[in-house]
């Protein structure tokens, strides 16, 4: 009987000790995880265009965290949807066409001699990418422009164009190979050899 009690006592003691150690470790080595909204926000393109129906990317990130569909961001496109799906462990769905379609990257360009200096576009730009002053010519800082389109509508003389950013030698990237193509049906190496030398 005594041994049984002793055993139980020791086990209880041990569990208490380990519990204390684990509890301490939990507090001491606590890792502050990224709140989910931050993680979602980090995946969104930060174009701040509002096409998702929210005033900026972060509000949409919050909405996603609260259960909104992940396919409302046209600038992010399918890549963003895929990333969000991976993060949230949900199914990747195609982009919701109601919010717009995925388009090539664009920047705003002001036709400067037509600009009347009304400053309306400055007020519209969510990232302060437009430079100018009242009654002065305005211009877009192309490097800062996210291509959100928001400055186009307010311009009273319609002098802002959205121009596609072409690929230059510096921004060009290699294509993905086609992969195992249908043409490579002849799996046997000798067949292939014959075809090549032919």
């Amino acid at each position: 009987m005594l041994t049984v009690l002793l055993a139980i006592g020791i086990l209880v003691l041990l569990s208490l000790i380990f519990g204390a150690i684990l509890g301490y470790a939990n507090v001491r080595f606590h890792v502050e995880g990224d709140p989910i909204v931050d993680q979602i926000d980090a995946l969104l393109p930060q174009t701040q265009c509002g096409q998702c129906g929210h005033p900026g990317c972060r509000p949409y990130a919050e909405a996603i965290a609260n259960g909104e569909a992940i396919n409302h961001c046209p600038p992010g496109g399918q890549a963003t949807i895929q990333a969000l799906a991976d993060l949230l462990d949900v199914e990747a769905v195609p982009l919701d066409g109601d919010h717009g379609t995925e388009s090539a990257k664009r920047v705003a360009v002001i036709r400067e001699d037509e600009c009347i200096g009304c400053t309306k576009c400055i007020q519209a730009c969510p990232v302060d990418a437009i430079l100018g002053a009242a009654k002065q010519m305005h211009t877009v800082i192309a490097d800062e422009c996210t291509g959100c389109d928001l400055c186009v509508e307010p311009c009273p003389v319609d002098c802002i164009d959205m121009v596609e950013v072409g690929v230059t030698a510096k921004t060009w990237s290699w294509d993905k190979p086609q992969g195992i193509a249908a043409t490579s049906l002849n799996v046997i190496a000798t067949d292939r050899q014959a075809e090549v030398t032919h």
Binding site: D41, L44, P45, Q46, T47, Q48, G56, C57, P126, V127, D128, A129, E144, T146, W172, S173, W174, D175, K176, P177
Partner: peptide
């Protein structure tokens, strides 16, 4: 070719990240 493609995709993503971070900063500053 696969590696080159992957490398440029990663580089592009990094650049896009830098840009979007900048846009975020500017947006938040505004």
């Amino acid at each position: 070719q696969y590696y080159r493609h992957s490398k440029s995709s990663i580089r592009e993503a990094r650049e896009a990240n830098v840009k979007s971070d900048l846009a975020k900063q500017r947006f938040e500053a505004r």
